[in-house]
Design a protein around this nucleic acid. Structure first.
Length: 361
DNA sequence: AACTCGTGGAG
DNA sequence: TCTCCAAGAGT
């Protein structure tokens, strides 16, 4: 089991088979260059940040919108952060948007507006971790870097029948992947491996009959491909409760404020609410409303699920507040027709829809 | 080294 | 309905 030359030959053969498959099944994606051409580093970076824990289908329209608004890294660096948050609204993981802006500014000020072309230098930039650094180095600069995402973890776990659970097998996966990265066409290899995981060797179905690695895959040979990779069980999600306040002025404008920079939905716009607490709700939530009288609780509740908890929000609406003399520090009034353009996360869009539907009765 | 951080689609 | 999970990073 320690035949190094045989293992090296096996790695080269697997890489060659994968690249051959990629040449026949290459997908056209908005950020992907034409076959044989090198992609724009700005496009690669922007797409890779958006694709972190996010599907290709979801990212597509956001990528096009960002590219139209900010065609270069310099224009993105020069944009107000709030404009970027507004454009990012709905995509989730909002720290990515703030780091996107930080990274663009760092590229302009520290790298003369040109993305660095090594894994090591890329890794130092905000929002670029081990996966993204390797992906940009390989895809944009054709450097032999091993970009290991969830697809690669799954495909490699199956190809080598790694029976131990993640994350313990990550070092093995890294070594096995690195051994396969070819000296040339490293970018194509990275994209091919991810495409294989996305379209053939999928989480529930291994589809071994159409897989370019079916001849060598140990997971298939042992009949356990679809059971891999094994993972540790996840903790159940608790439910948090809260009350959100829909406060309209006599001219129809609604009260909003910005959330704190750090933490959940950091920097995004919200309607004022109580804290979201696990267990029973506060006895008198209205005492936490910034202003308003004549409260009525709207029928139903807004439900939303985050990565690690469920949320149930009651919505209370007040009587219209006078047009003048009701300004509050940190708060703004927004005409409801302008809400779609605000940096409202999906949760708050649900609140808005819920409150405005109740007002239509 | 766990934990935090969104959202929407598939099954 | 409910779980899983998708081109992960920051702390």
């Amino acid at each position: 089991m320690n035949d190094a030359p045989a293992e090296a030959r096996q790695s080269r053969e697997m890489a060659a088979a994968l690249l051959s498959w990629y040449d026949r099944h290459r997908r056209a994606l908005p950020w992907r260059a034409a076959a044989g051409h090198r992609a724009d580093p700005y496009h690669v970076w922007l797409s890779e940040i958006m694709l972190q824990q996010t599907t290709v289908v979801t990212v597509g329209p956001y990528f096009q919108k960002f590219l139209a608004a900010w065609p270069t890294v310099a224009t993105l660096a020069g944009a107000p952060l709030d404009d970027i948050l507004k454009a990012w609204a709905g995509l989730g993981y909002y720290a990515r948007a703030r780091n996107l802006h930080k990274c663009a500014k760092a590229v302009v000020t520290d790298h003369h507006g040109v993305f660095p072309d090594t894994e090591e230098a890329l890794l130092k930039l905000p929002g670029i971790g081990p996966y993204t650094a390797a992906a940009i180095a390989a895809i944009a600069f054709d450097r032999p870097a091993a970009a290991i995402d969830g697809n690669v973890e799954r495909v490699v776990s199956r190809a080598f029948a790694l029976r131990e659970p993640l994350p313990e097998t990550k070092p093995q996966i890294r070594d096995l992947t690195r051994a396969m990265v070819p000296e040339t066409r490293a970018g194509d290899f990275a994209q091919a491996l991810m495409d294989l995981g996305a379209t053939v060797c999928t989480p529930r179905r291994a589809n071994c009959l159409i897989c370019p690695w079916s001849g060598s895959c140990l997971g298939q040979a042992q009949g356990i491909a679809e059971d891999l990779p094994r993972k540790r069980p996840k903790a159940p999600k608790p439910t948090r409760h809260g009350t959100v306040f829909w406060i309209a002025r006599s001219d129809g404008a609604v009260l909003v404020r910005a959330r704190p920079e750090k933490g959940l939905l950091g920097g995004m716009t919200e309607f004022p609410s109580t804290q979201w607490t696990e267990g029973a709700e506060p006895a008198n939530p209205l005492s936490q409303a910034p202003l308003g009288t004549g409260w009525r609780k709207l029928a139903g509740a807004v439900r939303h699920t985050f990565t690690h908890f469920h949320l149930e929000l009651d919505v209370w609406a007040s009587e219209p507040v006078p047009r003048d003399g009701c300004d509050l520090p940190g708060c703004r009034w927004v005409d409801p027709v302008d809400l779609p353009a605000e940096a409202l996360p999906t949760l708050m869009r649900k609140v808005s829809a819920h409150a405005q539907a109740a007002g239509d009765d």
